[in-house]
């Protein structure tokens, strides 16, 4: 047996200085953590989905049954679609920032409030 420690080595750093993209690297570090949490929730969700589908098929829900589960094409498509919707939800703020690029400058609510409060 070798002494490869998979937990430690799995996340090893690749050779080469890591670039950071955001103005504040701490925000980016946190983003990395959030992304992995997002990932792990998707993993848990897929497991739940597998369990539900085994139950629906009337099969015993054992660890072995979960491991050997194969989704049909339709089932896989449903799961894929779920993940796409999930990602769209998680990254809503980026979508909205993106949409704002095209809209350009917009009035803030306070400006509109002032405008609406103007007397005739």
């Amino acid at each position: 047996m070798s002494n490869i420690d998979p937990i430690k080595l799995a996340g090893a750093k690749a050779k080469g200085k890591r670039p950071y993209f955001m103005d504040n690297p701490d925000v980016e570090r946190l983003t990395n953590i959030v992304l992995v949490l997002t990932q792990e929730l998707a993993v848990t969700r897929e497991r739940m989905d597998t369990i539900e589908r085994l139950l629906e098929r009337g099969e015993p829900v054992t660890k072995a049954a979960i491991e050997s589960f194969r989704a049909s094409r339709t089932e896989a498509d449903e799961r894929g679609l779920w993940t796409q919707e999930y990602l769209a939800r998680v990254f809503r703020i980026i979508q909205q920032e993106g949409e704002a690029i095209e809209t350009g400058d917009e009035a803030e609510s306070e400006e509109v409030a002032d405008e609406l409060a103007e007397r005739a």
Partner: peptide, 11 residues
């Protein structure tokens, strides 16, 4: 494993 496949699906 099941969950490892799920992780690749997510990625």
């Amino acid at each position: 494993s099941h969950d490892e496949s799920a992780r690749f699906n997510f990625l």
